[in-house]
Amino acid sequence: MNQPQPEKTIDIDFGNPQPFFDKNRAVVVIEKKNKTPYPKSVVKEMLDIIRQNRELIEKTYESG
């Protein structure tokens, strides 16, 4: 009977001590180590979310 194959993972040295990080997110950590400060595209998306939230609050609670 075929043994189930483990899912492929990439071993990355996070340094010490970082045992609690999710390896699926490792690429972000590596990218952040190499680039300063954060991926611009992600920051832009988050700023857009904050703007939408602010507009939603203004429309819902502050218009009246």
């Binding site: 999710d22 997110r25 972000v28 952040k32 991926p39 992600v42 998306e45 979310i49 939603l56 609050i57």
Partner: peptide, 20 residues
Amino acid sequence: PEQRKLKEDFISKAIFTPAI
């Protein structure tokens, strides 16, 4: 509901490193 979706999108972004 719209704010709930925005919060979920915000917290899931990759600049936040999750603690397992």
